[in-house]
C-alpha cells in the first residue's frame, strides 16, 4: 500500500482504534469489559505492525497476544468472583501510580522517537525467511536461552498444578 492517502487513512484509523481501546482498558468500570478492550488494543497493534509491513510480527502478535494471552486474561477474569465490583483494582497508589506510569511512558516515547529515524518509506519485503535465518543463525544462543527459560516456566507450572504427591490436594 504505497498510496499516501490510503496509508494515512489506514494509519489514523488503526491508531485511533488502538488508543480508544487502550483508554477503555484503563477507564472502564467493568473488569470484563476491560479484558475485552485489551483484546481490541492488542488487535489494533497487530494491525499497526501489518501497516508498517512487518507481516510476520503482526501475525505472531495475533497468534500469541490475541489468541493466547487475551484468552488467558479473559479466563482469569471470568473465573474471578465478585466481578461487578469495580473496587477490585488496586486503589492504594491510584493517582501517584498513574502519574508515574504516564511520566515513564512519555520518557520512553521521547527516547524511542529520537532514536528511530523517521520518514523512510520502504516497500513490503518478505521478511519471514530473514527472521528465521537470523533467529537460527546469528541469534541462536539467545533464542535457545529463551526457550530454556520457557521450558523452566512450563515445568514449574506443571509442578505447582500437580501439587505434592500424597498431600491433601
Amino acid at each position: 500500500m504505497t498510496d499516501p492517502v490510503v496509508s494515512a487513512m489506514v494509519f489514523y484509523a488503526l491508531a485511533t482504534f488502538t488508543l480508544v481501546a487502550a483508554g477503555f482498558v484503563a477507564l472502564s468500570n467493568n473488569i470484563v469489559h476491560s479484558a475485552f478492550a485489551l483484546f481490541a488494543t492488542l488487535f489494533g497493534m497487530a494491525g499497526l505492525y501489518a501497516f508498517l509491513s512487518a507481516d510476520l510480527l503482526a501475525i505472531v502478535q495475533m497468534l500469541v497476544y490475541v489468541g493466547g494471552i487475551s484468552v488467558l486474561v479473559l479466563f482469569a477474569v471470568m473465573l474471578t468472583s465478585g466481578l461487578d465490583d469495580s473496587r477490585h483494582s488496586n486503589s492504594t497508589t491510584r493517582l501517584a501510580g498513574g502519574i508515574a506510569v504516564l511520566l515513564a511512558v512519555a520518557a520512553a516515547a521521547f527516547v524511542a522517537a529520537s532514536a528511530v529515524p523517521s520518514g523512510t518509506e520502504s516497500a513490503i519485503t518478505p521478511m519471514t525467511a530473514l527472521i528465521g535465518d537470523a533467529l537460527l543463525g546469528r541469534f541462536v544462543l539467545p533464542f535457545e536461552v529463551v526457550s530454556v527459560v520457557l521450558l523452566a516456566a512450563l515445568l514449574g507450572g506443571v509442578t505447582l498444578a500437580r501439587g505434592v504427591k500424597g498431600g491433601d490436594r
Binding site: F43, D55, L56, I59, V60, M62, G67, S70, L74, M127
Partner: peptide, 18 residues
C-alpha cells in the same frame, strides 16, 4: 497471497475464540 498465509490462518482463529 500473503507471505505468511498459513500462519495468518492459524492466528485469525483467535477472533473466534474471543
Amino acid at each position: 497471497d500473503l507471505d505468511v498465509g498459513l500462519l495468518y490462518l492459524l492466528a485469525i482463529t483467535g477472533l473466534v475464540v474471543i
